[in-house]
Design a binder for these strands. Structure first.
Length: 432
RNA sequence: UCCGCGGUAGCUCAGUGGUAGAGCGUUCGACUGUUAAUCGAAUGGUCGUAGGUUCGAAUCCUACCCGCGGAG
């Protein structure tokens, strides 16, 4: 039962308080010190710098399997990444509306940043000059950077694809920029990303098979170039062996194309593999079906990262099939847009029914804000367009996602993942 | 009391002869490697009242009511 297990988890940086009884409606709301968004300052010593390496190389330990689900740990010089892991998205060097301290205390081991956005502003060379992305944004744990491949799709109106790469027109000032596999890797090295992604072409679905195949084959050639560029960076000191380059399997929902893509990437012997180009319009069932057919084509002893996914349902079903890493804007974006992910389902805090509801948002959450602020108050903040509403919901959702991953890891460790899933899935996928 | 301006959707206002629109609000929805504190949909008005002119009036005319400003 997750209600119980969520309260019995032992987490390094979290004081777990039992507050489920606080639901008394007439009681005045208390704002206890535990809810401070700035709980403890980051250690000043070595802040933002690479810790003197305990482990110089990147690695992955597969600890246990339960059904198809895997428990593991990615080892990096900046610390371990417990898997299955969810990476909060910090595209422009910030997880929107949250302090890095809150993201850390939520339990995140790694963040995602973005090549395209940071290259345009403030600029990769500038970040390098200032000491790297970790120091810049005060996040000393690992960072994974996306290569800009997703922007090939999301910014399709202002770009052109050639064999060489993607020519973008900046969405900020209209200036022209070329993103090639070589430049993408260079930028990711300048940022100091611990895990770097190959440059790829992500396309929207549905799409013609020929188009899917063309983008997949192009992405394979770009993977080769990305690897050569990354190896050259390691050779010249622009990157270390503690950093890693992941390949991205493409191929839409076409299984033979997915297999062809996976096979070619596996032959390149990369330290990790992502499944890209999913959750781009095909629907949950099709995505899971494609994933089920794709994952077995990847090596067991390397981390598997499902890019850009997803809903709690997506995460649970994907972990059940052996995915180790995720990232998604959903907890933060939907938080800014008024939704709360809770252990009893999805809440639209803008709905009128919350206007006079003094109960907490989620008494099963380990996020202080989920206990402290009433639904009525958060409803008011969202209706008023107040920033604090977005901050509170982003916080609650970020904690929810991490707590979800914690519970999954715990369940795998205790070899009860299927039972856990049967219990939790119907509740977290409900709409309240 | 006189003069002027104005009364159109819950609010602020467009619409000057062909049977009403916008923004905001309200309600609901969407969002999956963030161009997103964003976007979409629905809701909503016998056009101050009563007459008149006209084939046709929110629009022109008359009276009255209400508001604001000015004069006395």
């Amino acid at each position: 039962m997750s209600a119980k297990s969520s309260l019995t988890l032992t987490l390094t940086s979290f004081t777990v308080t039992t507050r489920a009884e606080i639901v008394v409606i007439e009681q005045p709301m208390t704002i206890p010190p535990a809810s401070s968004p700035h709980p403890q300052p980051l250690p000043v010593k070595g802040r933002g710098d690479v810790p003197q390496a305990v482990e110089e190389t990147f690695g992955f330990k597969l600890i246990k399997q339960s059904g198809g689900a895997r428990l593991g740990e990615i080892v990096t010089p900046r610390g371990p990444i417990r898997t299955p892991a969810f990476m909060p998205v910090g595209t422009v060097a910030t997880v929107k509306a949250l302090y890095p301290e809150q993201v850390r205390d939520a339990g995140a081991d790694i963040l995602l940043g973005n090549t395209y956005h940071l290259m345009l502003r403030p600029g990769a060379e500038r970040i390098a000059k200032l000491g790297g992305l970790h120091k810049f944004m005060r996040w000393d744990k690992p960072i994974l950077t996306d290569s800009g491949g997703f922007q090939v799709m999301s910014l399709s109106k202002i770009r052109k694809i050639t064999e060489e790469g993607a020519a973008f027109q900046s969405h900020i000032d209209g200036s022209r920029h070329m993103l090639t596999p070589e430049r993408s890797i260079e930028v990711q090295c300048l940022l100091g990303a611990d895990i770097q992604m190959q440059f790829d072409e992500c396309i929207e679905l549905p799409a013609e098979r020929r188009e899917v195949e063309r983008a997949m084959e192009l992405s394979l050639r770009w993977a080769e170039r990305s690897k050569r560029a990354f190896d050259a960076q390691v050779a010249s000191g622009g990157a270390t062996r503690g950093q890693a380059l992941f390949g991205i399997v493409q191929g839409g929902i076409d299984i033979p194309l997915r297999h062809r893509s996976a096979e070619a990437l596996v032959a390149m012997d990369l330290p990790g593999y992502a499944v890209g180009g999913l959750a781009v319009g095909e629907g949950h069932e099709v995505m899971i079906a494609t994933l089920s057919e794709t994952l077995p084509a990847l090596p067991e002893h390397k981390p598997r990262y499902l890019m850009g996914v997803g809903t709690p349902l997506d995460l649970i079903e994907s972990v059940a099939r052996g995915v180790d890493m995720f990232d998604c804007v959903m907890p933060t974006r939907n938080g800014r847009h008024g939704y709360a992910f809770t252990w009893n389902g999805l809440l639209n805090m803008k709905n009128a029914k919350h206007a006079e509801d003094m109960s907490p948002i989620d008494c099963l959450s380990r996020c202080p804000a989920a206990q402290d602020y009433s639904r009525a108050y958060v409803h008011h903040l969202m209706k008023s367009g107040e920033i604090l509403g977005a901050m509170i919901l982003s916080w609650i959702n970020t904690v929810f996602y991490q707590q979800l991953m914690d519970e999954m890891r715990q369940a795998i460790a205790e070899d009860r993942f299927d039972a856990w899933k049967a219990d939790v899935l119907p509740r977290v996928t409900a709409r309240v």
